[in-house]
């Protein structure tokens, strides 16, 4: 009954359990653009996302490129009484280290920088070879990494923090948004779009399919 790593219950129908209420469904192949919801609780079970591999790959690559731009330029610049200061993603993250708050430094570094970048790298590692038609070694492990760190990336919240800082400081000094703010906005757009394009169920299906060692 098990073929290609999927528990098949009938012709072309896959057994699916809701992640929020555990209700079982027999899932037929979804028509293009369709969304399958749980009968009992309404949670989204799966959705068909045509061309998702190429789309996710492109958007993830764009996100990674934008990350380098965000890191190379200041987010905000402050001018007051002839003096000037600026903050970048990295300088902001390590600043609290000067005050001995290394726990906060680690939290900020992980959520605003390391996890989002690692997520992109892990996705590219799995998707790039997959688009070219083969499975990279350790794909299962890398995709698991991407899955488990994705809730800890907080670029959207960080962007809100930058906006709040901008408005708050406009009251006391001249604040100039740096190049990195625009890059960060674009990055947020690309990473959100990549998340929406990603069809993780299909990727697991492909990973399982190539993996012949498993039942």
């Amino acid at each position: 009954m098990v073929s290609h790593g999927i528990w098949v219950v009938g012709p072309e129908r896959v057994l699916f359990a809701c992640h929020e209420c555990d209700w079982l469904h027999r899932m037929p192949p979804l028509p293009e653009g369709a969304v399958a919801r749980c009968r009992r609780c309404g949670a989204v079970l799966a959705s068909s996302r045509p061309d998702h591999l190429v789309r996710t790959l492109t958007l993830t690559f764009a996100t990674l490129v934008l990350f380098t731009i965000v890191n190379a330029f200041p987010l905000l610049e402050l001018k007051l009484g002839g003096r000037e200061t600026s903050v970048t993603l990295l300088s902001g993250a390590v600043e609290l280290g000067h005050h001995g708050m290394w726990d906060v430094v680690i939290l900020v570094l992980l959520t605003s920088l390391l996890f989002p970048i690692l997520h992109c790298v892990a996705l590219l590692y799995v998707l790039m070879p997959m688009v070219m038609g083969y499975k990279p070694p350790g794909a299962v492990w890398m995709f698991r990494v991407a899955h488990s760190i994705s809730p800890w990336g907080m670029i959207g919240v960080y962007m809100l923090g930058v906006l709040v800082a901008f408005v708050k400081l406009s009251d006391m000094a001249t604040v100039v948004p740096g190049v990195a703010v625009y890059a960060l906005a674009a990055l947020l757009f690309c990473s959100t779009a990549a998340g929406n394009a990603l069809d993780c169920c299909d990727i697991w299906r492909r990973i399982g399919e190539v993996d012949d060692g498993h039942p």
């Binding site: 987010l75 905000l76 402050l78 200061t85 600026s86 903050v87 300088s91 902001g92 993250a93 600043e95 609290l96 005050h99 906060v104 939290l107 900020v108 605003s112 907080m154 919240v157 960080y158 809100l160 923090g161 930058v162 709040v164 800082a165 708050k168 400081l169 006391m172 000094a173």
Partner: peptide, 11 residues
């Protein structure tokens, strides 16, 4: 948290 890190670095 992000706000405090940004403000302390800038000001």
């Amino acid at each position: 948290i992000f706000l405090v890190t940004l403000l302390t670095t800038l000001v």
